[in-house]
Amino acid sequence: MKCMVYLETLGGKITPPSAEALGAAKQLGETMAVISGLSASSATGDAFGYGATAVAVLNTLQNEEFVAEHFCEAIAPFIRDQKPDLVLFPNSFECRELAGMLSVDLDSPIATDVVRIETRGETILVERPIYEGKAFEKIALGEGIKLVTLRARAFNQPELSAASNGTIFGIDMAAKRMVEVLAKSEAQGGVSLSSAKVVISGGRGITNCKQLAGDETASAKRGLILLEELAETMGGAVAGSRAIVDAGYLPYSHQVGQTGKLVSPDVYIAAGISGSIQHIVGMRSSKLIIAVNKDPEAPIFEVADLGVVADLFEYLPALNEDLKKKLG
């Protein structure tokens, strides 16, 4: 099978979900990588290292931001030329837009958020969650160049080998511009939520600190600091329930759940989160769920592996101290 994989880069490095997509493609056959991003060309070595047999670099203009139409205009003819059987993408917002547009140009079967790929003879089957992960559907992809986006952390990241060269192509951008990017503000560093190995998540409980009786804002400030400190110690990302996002304590991009993000880290710590169904659908596939809540009856304990009935304002600092000791 002839595969192609679309890689996103950040600061000249291939993002973890992109590396996972490259690993998945390699299992299926010879793989060409298409690299995008502000300093895409510095990632060619790693693309070969992860197992690509050829690499194409998207020649965007300096500082050119992703716009789906513009990238689609450039990449669609390249895909038509190369005629891969299958193109894999990470499941980022940007890639879903790009893959969606490519499916129109190529009249392709497309499946997003895929968690498993298998082959049956010549047929490619993919499995993807439906009804917010309450069920899975296996689908056979029909005729044409198949487009598939992969859920972050559903596939293993391949080893990075020493191989660092091979054939390099360039893909030129088309001239047409439909959307202009006027300004951008980047999140303050930190680890990307969807690909984080550890997620420290806070709920309305963080607005309820005994010592600050009644002062929600001051409580939330202190609570957020506790989440951030723990995230830093564990190398994780901070997230929250809708309750604290709606109250304005965390940006929407950090909301976990039905109308927020789906995450599946190795460890998910839920602090002061009651465990509504809309929250649980966003985090239940995490490998280890630790819940801390004052209320022993909170539904979050039904999905947790480890439960701690405590006041988070006392427990989280203690946990952070102990971890710092043990992790040196």
């Binding site: 392709s108 079967p109 497309i110 499946a111 089957l125 499995e127 992960g133 309450k134 069920a135 899975f136 559907e137 296996k138 689908i139 056979a140 992809l141 029909g142 005729e143 044409g144 239940r284 596939s285 819940a291 022993p296 304990f301 039904e302 999905v303 947790a304 592996d305 480890l306 439960g307 701690v308 009935v309």
Partner: peptide
């Protein structure tokens, strides 16, 4: 014709119950 349903499945039930510390 582009996507052909093969089968549905339910997620594996969580076998562990919460261990309270």
């Amino acid at each position: 014709s582009r996507l052909l349903h093969d089968s549905f499945a339910l997620p594996l039930k969580k076998t562990t119950t919460c261990e309270f510390i």
